[in-house]
Computed example of a mutant assay.
Amino acid sequence: MTVKYIIPIVLIVIWIGGLYELITSATTEHLIIILSLTILSLIASLIFTKLSARTDSWLNADERIIE
């Protein structure tokens, strides 16, 4: 149970530390590239989240569950 909470917290701390170091030591060109990639990733995530299912049967979870 503790692994469920500890691993995400550790990963978030490492990620934020890496971003902080990257931002403080990066040049303007690097920051523009990082910002562009971040925006593209967020837009792609939003598009894939908003896409509807191809078939109505996909919305029925009972058909997807393997027993």
Rank of each mutant, 00 (worst) to 15 (best):
D62G: 04
S25L: 08
I7E: 00
R64H: 14
I12A: 11
W15Y: 15
E67A: 10
Y5I: 04
T38Q: 06
I9M: 03
S52V: 08
D56C: 04
Y20C: 08
V10G: 01
L46F: 12
W15S: 13
L40A: 15
V10H: 00
V10K: 00
I33N: 07
V10F: 02
T28A: 14
V10E: 01
V10I: 14
I16D: 01
T28Q: 12
T27H: 05
T55C: 04
D56H: 10
G17Y: 02
E29C: 01
I16Q: 06
N60D: 15
I14T: 07
S52E: 14
D56W: 06
T49Y: 13
I16F: 07
M1R: 01
I43M: 10
T28W: 06
R54D: 15
T2N: 04
T2Y: 01
I7A: 00
S57Q: 13
N60E: 13
D56M: 11
E63T: 10
I34D: 05
I34W: 04
I32M: 11
D62V: 08
D56I: 07
L19K: 06
L46M: 08
G18F: 04
L37F: 07
I7Y: 00
S57K: 10
I34S: 08
T2L: 05
L35E: 10
D62S: 12
A44D: 05
L35Q: 08
A61D: 14
I32A: 12
Y20W: 09
H30N: 12
L51A: 09
G17M: 03
T24E: 11
L35G: 15
E21V: 07
I23T: 11
I33L: 13
R54H: 14
I14F: 07
V10R: 00
H30V: 15
L22Y: 13
I65G: 02
L31I: 08
S45G: 14
T38L: 14
M1H: 02
A44P: 03
K50D: 09
I16Y: 04
H30C: 04
L59S: 14
W58L: 15
V3Q: 02
I16K: 05
S41V: 10
K4C: 01
Y5S: 06
G18V: 04
A53R: 12
L51M: 15
L35F: 12
A61T: 12
I12M: 08
V3A: 05
L31R: 08
L42G: 13
L59Q: 13
L37H: 03
I66D: 07
T38I: 08
K4Q: 03
L11Q: 04
I32G: 02
T28K: 11
M1I: 01
I33G: 05
A61K: 14
V13L: 08
L40Y: 06
I6E: 00
E63F: 10
F48L: 13
E67V: 10
S45H: 07
I23Y: 06
I47D: 06
D56F: 09
S52Q: 15
L40D: 05
L42T: 09
I7H: 00
I33R: 06
I6G: 00
V3P: 00
L31W: 03
S41Q: 07
K50M: 15
H30R: 10
I65W: 04
I32D: 09
L46S: 07
T24D: 06
